[in-house]
Design a protein around this nucleic acid. Structure first.
Lengths: 212, 212, 212, 212
DNA sequence: GATGAATGAGGCTTCATTCAT
DNA sequence: TATGAATGAAGCCTCATTCAT
């Protein structure tokens, strides 16, 4: 574990380094991102990086963990309190845009994990987080059904998976041209881009139409 | 466009070369795939490749076009004839597995386009195909609504996007560990992998629960 | 085997490359010799080197084989014909100096194999050659004993090992300050260096005194 | 000379540090040995090392001096008293094995000095010690000749050099695979390794056959 | 048109040495 | 005096692309 020396840094500095790495990784992708470029962005020497992390892979995994941390923090903010399903979903959907703006880079990186060339990293990060979102959506769906807020004949898995898919792809559409195009082709005129707020309303309409 | 010389090759040879390239691209990803490795797989010389295609990017785009071609061919097979919505959807869903087996490599490459580091290629391929699937799903949804096969209060876009999402992610789950894990976490026990047929039934159930 | 491409080069070019590599390896030692430096000396690009040899280690082994080749060629020149022991030994001893001048670099490299940090290479080259010199010395010693040219009570192994040691260390003294110093401390006044011819006479005297 | 601060350390600590450095230097060779690795082995900080020694080279020279010291101490134990030549030689030969076991690392380092890439260090250490062994062997040879224990017609230099060569290479064969192989090829069957005691007898036989 | 050897810039990583604490 | 984090030059190797044959 080379991380000992990294963990000794002030937390702000740690985050600044991971943020810088995330920026480069998100811009160029893992394989195209250069170590020197990252070091320059992080304002550390090449040597320092290798004191902090075993190698490029190790750095990337640290960035993934940071991404998980941030998402979890965000999730916790959303998960608390009692709420009608639609309010809660709106809250979640609305949180996507500021999150995707503030933590764009981490979201992009997370998204990249889907690529098969990243398979070696996928297990490193996805497991915990996916399981968590599943649990969360499952519980709010069940509660909503018990309260008669959604149709009785919809199974929990179906609803939870549907919600998760839509949210994931919505989040992706906030940071990737490809997914934004796709979203706009379905919901827009295929030429102009939809704005964040418009997307939110469309997502919410989908939820209501299919679950309500 | 060096493609002229490529097009002079017998079609079988063209396909064999693209297939070989697709195999390597899918195994390693665009950036990690080596030109020499591809040439070896395609049984052509390095020099020949640069006679056929401008450069690595040009080769990749040719592979993308081939992927689009194959998907379109498949789509056309499915699109024909009159059919009840559920039968048509089942037909589509069921076609995913053999397609993902036969054209695994192309599907994987297509999947990689979602990665932001591939943004420069995304426009190259997605546009045409996405627009096509949208049109297709939109038309069958509208027909189904007219025939009372699905709920009247569901908008076409919502339904078409929902269907497309599910199919896309199902297809991805057939070729990517990451997406397979995700699917199984939602629908399985999170440990064992679901088989193709089980997935099909779960997808169909989702369609029926949410649209029906 | 990357060597296929190397073996396609004209033999002169092959030797020129190996000679250049041998020069740098002998000057700096294996670990201190830089690939780029070698390429510059060999007038080839870095890339070419890695087409010819798997890596630095592979290049070094090729140099070792070349050294073995040269020594064997030299040995064959010496081994032929019938001769009185003393004449034969003188011939061998005398051949050391021109050989050490012409193939200084290879000799130095061969010498370096004795260092424990080179253990991984030692087996690559020594085995065959050592065994060969042993066989050669053993046969001339036995013949000499049968002809009454040396004392009857000296065992073959003892004599062969003695001869080999002296020759080896003599050869080393021709290319290494350390061994030259050592030789001169024993046989000279410890300050001035002995010349090649003087060394030859001293070696021959040793042979005669101890074997004769 | 940073050595002043080093000399202030308790002698045990000094030896412990030099022993640790010797261990690493012998395992990896001078160029492959890492300063940090040595510091870890010596349980001192990187900074401390540079307080004790000017640089890597300075540390290595200190290790060489320690090696010389130890060898001299051993030599003195052997040199004392009056003894028949063969007994004295046996004593020397027999002392090689325990010495090579106890001070393996120092012996290996000493051995490495023969490599031309170490020429810059060779003068640092060899001079004094070689001169000493020469003096020692010369005196016992002369005494033995005066007592009629060896043949009269053997010159002092020849005998001393012969003895020193054999002892040196025997010592090397105790710590280096390369030299062990060489010894066994000459005296063994070339496959099995000879044990220490067998080697001793073979060395002694050589001495008696050639000098006696 | 086809070949495949050659190029050389650029990537990841190491490590002797320094210096603020 | 001791620490150990930081430096950054230099090392080995890869690979997209070119070009003589």
């Amino acid at each position: 574990m080379r991380t000992r020396t990294f963990n000794k840094l002030p937390e702000k500095r740690q985050h600044a380094i991971l943020d810088a790495a995330a920026r480069i990784f998100s811009q160029k992708g893992y394989f195209q991102a250069g170590i020197s470029e990252i070091c320059q962005a992080a304002e550390i020497s090449n040597g320092a990086l290798y004191k902090y992390f075993e190698n490029k892979k190790g750095l990337f995994i640290a960035v993934l963990y940071r991404a998980g941390e941030l998402m979890l923090t965000e999730a916790i903010k959303i998960a608390g309190g009692k709420m009608v399903l639609w309010d809660r979903l709106r809250m979640v959907v609305e949180s996507v845009i500021p999150f995707s703006e503030k933590y764009r880079d981490y979201l992009v990186i997370f998204m990249d994990l889907g690529s098969p060339s990243m398979d070696e990293f996928a297990s490193e990060a996805s497991g915990g987080f996916e399981r968590a979102t599943f649990g969360f959506f499952k519980s709010i769906v069940e509660e909503a059904r018990n309260n008669g807020q959604i149709r009785q004949d919809i199974s929990t898995e179906t609803a939870a998976y549907f919600i998760d898919n839509h949210l994931m792809l919505f989040a992706f559409s906030c940071v990737s041209n490809y997914h934004d195009d796709r979203f706009c082709q379905f919901f827009g005129n295929g030429v102009d881009r939809l704005k964040g707020e418009q997307k939110i309303e469309l997502i919410m309409r989908s939820f209501k139409e299919l679950l309500g």
